[in-house]
Design a protein around this nucleic acid. Structure first.
Length: 572
RNA sequence: CGGGGCGUAGCGCAGCCUGGUUAGCGCACUUGACUGGGGGUCAAGGGGUCGGUGGUUCAAAUCCACUCGCCCCGACCA
């Protein structure tokens, strides 16, 4: 491709509303344009990258024995009504109505549709297992699209769905997908972790997320430094603390005045006691009840764990009125001692001795509080892991905390959809049973942006060879006939060898071309100029090399061959 | 949905508080000259329903009301 004929609108200044690296880079480099909140156009370079990601995903899905299908984006409401998601999805579902008044929506995910496709055709265990996948645009009316391409209202997603006769079969399908995912992310050279994750409300048993590690990630993860344990912070566990006795008997619990000191920080300063001696008491609304959850002062409560311990779907922080009503005190003075209602305490909070808590009385706290002696509560794991916690899996490991972007999620669904939709098969004995399903997503368009988040520098993008829009950029300097001739010859030689070449033949100054080449991030740059030709050939420099003086001089005659080999090596 | 902010040339912004006659700046764009290995210099140009509607006023980018769009923080998020 000749740049002089290409549509690659690079710009110096990104729109002011671009806040993260991928949005800024992809916009400046002419890959995408935003035309609405969470709605993007893919320009030629952007589409080439998107297609390359799709191709890798397709190849690995096919290799794992899955087959591609295409489902409608426009869906009649019947299917989602059948499983209740017409209501469950709420405002996240992009709904519309046709001229006859019929309810429709744009598909946010296609479990119901694929389940319907399968139930109409699959009758027998002989028809199973099967794995079907789709790569297509999906729609969610996000409450707040953000992060450029990272969270859009319309996005490209690969979803695979597996259908098995039993749990063992489903586990095997899941394992195949796990391996396929590993291959996909490896081929893209991403730095990622597979982590345990919350299966969500959709009743999955086994599930794992593929998190790409980047500082700008929305998710927090933890991983052990010595074994393979890794989990999303939502569900991450740490080792249970050892039980301990106070070194000296704790004096009787007593009340102290702490005027206007409601936060841990204020009371901690006021009483000159470190936060880890506090029992932080938080009130939560769980269904119709208000419960008290207690964690150590320096820890943060994890609402997913709390909900699980309570056996409810979700919990919400109590309102100010609820707090005042339940404790009889202003916000900031709640405590477990004397609390009338259900109390849960985190394992680490339960082993604090001579603790400090709110007194359920405005402007007062209690000191020398002892769990069991002064109050009782249900002990549970309620807090989020913090860096430095002991690994729950191995004896010596410490947990580190990272940030990541969720690029993939695999899980076993069981019979959640098949039971509701009567997607059954007959087993060997003729007994009708629901199909065991799994589903496996990859955010394809999100992956484009995620890769840029991980691979960029001050000058622009650094694509991995496997998904770069072009393998090589040939930069011709000056209007010299000899230079032009050398460029043409090199470009032809590379294209003959299957190398994808962008040839910058524009009559621009060298500085402009070099800046643009860095910005769009093609992995290999070949500079062809009078100077280089005089010195023996063309100059090859990887995008990762900052110093132009370190470019290799390749003889023009053999350059195409050598560069083609280099491309192949970088692809692997 | 709660809080904060922004809509003025393709992009980035000033002007608005304190209304006033041709609405400015940088980048980008066009033309010419010089220049030519990391976003060059000089000169001359073109480009605007000031988000929309209504109101106040002799006069509105500027004041008021409504409205649409967008961004950020939070809530939410397969």
């Amino acid at each position: 491709m000749r740049w002089s004929r290409a549509f690659i609108p690079t710009i110096k200044e990104a729109p002011a509303d671009a806040t993260n690296a991928s949005h800024v880079m992809l916009t400046r480099a002419g890959y995408v344009r935003r035309i609405g909140a969470g709605i993007y156009e893919y320009l030629p370079l952007g589409l080439r990258v998107l297609h390359k990601v799709e191709r890798i995903v397709r190849e690995e899905m096919d290799r794992a024995g899955a087959q591609e299908v295409l489902m409608p984006a426009l869906l009649p409401s019947d299917y989602f009504r059948e499983t209740g998601r017409w209501d469950v999805f709420g405002d996240n579902l992009l709904r519309l109505r046709d001229r006859k008044g019929g309810d429709y929506h744009l598909g946010p995910t296609h479990e119901e549709i694929i389940t319907d496709m399968v139930r109409r055709e699959i009758r027998s265990y002989r028809d199973l297992p099967r794995n079907l996948y789709q790569i297509q645009n999906k729609f969610r009316d996000e409450p707040r699209p953000r992060g450029g391409l990272l969270r859009c209202r319309e996005f490209v997603m690969k979803d695979a769905y597996s259908f098995d006769v039993d749990e063992a079969g489903a586990a095997a399908s899941y394992e195949l997908m796990r391996q396929a995912y590993t291959r996909v992310f490896d081929r893209m050279k991403l730095h990622y972790r597979m982590v345990q994750a919350d299966s969500g409300s959709m009743g999955g048993s086994t599930s794992a997320e593929f998190q790409v590690l980047v500082q700008s990630g929305e998710d927090f993860l933890t991983a052990c430094d010595s074994c393979g344990y890794a989990a999303n912070l939502e569900v991450a566990q740490c080792r249970e603390p050892a039980a301990s006795e106070p070194s000296t008997p704790t004096p009787a619990c007593s009340k102290v005045s702490t005027p206007n000191a409601g936060t841990i920080e204020e009371v901690s300063t006021f009483l000159k006691a470190s936060p880890d001696r506090f029992l932080k008491s938080l009130l939560y609304a769980a269904g119709d009840d208000v419960v008290l959850a207690v964690v150590r002062g320096d820890h943060e409560i994890n609402e997913i764990k709390l909900a699980r311990a309570l056996g409810v779907g979700e919990v919400a922080l109590a309102t100010e009125e609820q707090i005042v009503k339940a404790t009889g005190a202003k916000v900031g003075f709640a405590g477990p001692v004397g609390f009338k209602g259900r109390v849960l305490i985190d394992r680490d909070a339960a082993v604090v001795h001579a603790a400090i808590t709110g007194a359920n009385e405005t402007d007062f706290h209690l000191v020398n509080v002892e769990f069991k002696r002064d109050f009782d509560a249900q002990v549970a794991d309620l807090r989020s892991v913090v860096a430095g916690d002991a690994c729950p899996r191995c004896a010596k490991g410490k947990l580190a905390v990272y940030r990541g972007i969720e690029a993939g999620h695999i899980f076993i669904l069981g019979t959640h959809y098949s039971a509701k939709m009567r997607a059954n098969f007959s087993d060997e004995k003729g007994v009708e049973k629901p199909i065991i399903m799994g589903c496996y997503g990859i955010g394809v368009s999100r992956l484009v942006a995620t890769t840029v988040e991980q691979f960029n520098d001050a000058d622009g993008i650094l694509w991995p060879m496997s998904i770069a829009p072009y393998h090589v950029i040939v930069v011709g300097l000056g209007q010299d006939a000899a230079v032009t001739e050398a460029c043409e010859k090199l470009v032809a030689g590379l294209e003959e060898r299957g190398v994808e070449v962008l040839f910058d033949d524009r009559p621009e100054r060298p500085g402009v071309k070099f800046k643009d080449a860095d910005l769009i991030g093609i992995p290999l740059r070949v500079t062809v100029g009078a100077k280089g030709l005089a010195a023996g050939g063309v100059e090859l420099k990887p995008r990762t090399e900052r110093d132009p003086k370190k470019a290799e001089i390749l003889p023009l005659e053999s350059a195409a061959q050598l560069i083609a080999e280099r491309v192949r090596a970088m692809m692997a």
